[in-house]
């Protein structure tokens, strides 16, 4: 009987001692942490994609709590809703940020851009880019090996087998920028999603001279500048034989789309073209030129 008693007492004593030590230790080594960090973290989408520029949602939450002005900080995944919640928790002014979306600035499908050789190394754009300029005559275009798709954590990209180009599923894209970093050719760009997801961009990054670019790919931007001439808002610049539309200036008037001789300018999510009577000639009459 006494053995049982001694055993029970000893164990109970040990337990009590351990509890005291643990309590003391937890008091002594207590780290003060702003409780709002946890609140903010909970409000964030926990995607840990790094799209905000911080390593994970926790780090972003810490930064949000620390910063006096959070208008520069934005969670691309959560968007305005999440940022409003966060701003509410912290009692700070939230910034205005238009939602972004990734666009693929290459339209060099198999049809438009003939393959001149056959790549057969490791299936990785980065490996191919370290080796050479690619299967086609265009050394700026998409390799079609899917590093961007691999990098996407949101199931927002897939490789179109037919065209050999990546496709972005707009609804899933959170504009975290992982694909932008993964692309060795800097083809993918984050652009403003635009009202009703409508946007216009030059779907080409080829900086070769017009004739060379055109020879390599039917739909390459040849840097002719026609689009820049018709643009009423000075949104288009031509640099290194390549047109670029500044999405902050672009007002989606779409005047540049029809004048492009190679159809390199893409419009997305606009309603299907209605029959429009001789609208195309109008812009050519305006003598303004942005160059």
């Amino acid at each position: 009987m006494s053995i049982v008693l001694i055993t029970i007492l000893t164990l109970a004593g040990l337990g009590a001692l351990a509890a005291v030590i643990l309590y003391l230790a937890s008091q002594k080594f207590k780290v003060f942490e702003d409780p709002r960090i946890n609140q903010v973290e909970e409000a964030l989408p926990a995607a840990n994609c790094g799209g905000c520029g911080f390593p994970g949602c926790r780090a972003f939450a810490e930064a949000l709590v620390k910063a006096d002005d959070i208008s520069d900080l934005n969670c691309p995944v959560g968007g305005a809703d999440v940022m409003a919640t966060v701003a509410n928790i912290l009692g700070k002014e939230m910034g205005k940020s238009d939602p972004l979306v990734a666009v693929v600035r290459c339209n060099g499908t198999c049809e438009h851009r003939p393959r001149l050789n056959e790549y057969e190394g490791a299936t990785s754009c980065a490996v191919a880019a370290a080796l050479y300029g690619g299967e086609t005559g265009c050394s700026y275009g998409c390799y079609g090996l899917g590093d961007c798709v691999e990098a996407c954590d949101f199931n927002a990209m897939y490789m179109d087998e037919k065209t050999g180009l990546p496709v972005i599923i707009e609804d899933n894209c959170v504009a975290c920028g992982a694909c932008v970093d993964a692309c060795p050719k800097e083809i993918i760009e984050l652009r403003k999603k635009g009202p009703k997801s409508r946007r216009i961009f030059v779907s080409c990054v080829n900086q070769d001279k017009g004739a060379v670019a055109k020879k390599a790919c039917d739909v390459a931007c040849i840097g002719c500048g026609k689009c820049a001439k018709v643009c009423p808002f000075d949104a288009i610049t031509i640099e290194n034989n390549l047109a670029y539309i500044d999405y902050d200036k672009c007002r989606l008037c779409r005047k540049c789309v029809p004048v492009c001789p190679t159809n390199a300018i893409h419009e997305i999510n606009f309603p299907p073209p209605k029959p429009k009577p001789a609208k195309e000639q109008e812009p050519a009459n305006t003598p303004e030129s942005s160059n």
Binding site: N117, E118, Y119, G121, Y132
Partner: peptide, 8 residues
């Protein structure tokens, strides 16, 4: 046929 290109 097209030439095959691969790393060494």
């Amino acid at each position: 046929q097209k030439l095959v290109v691969s790393p060494s």
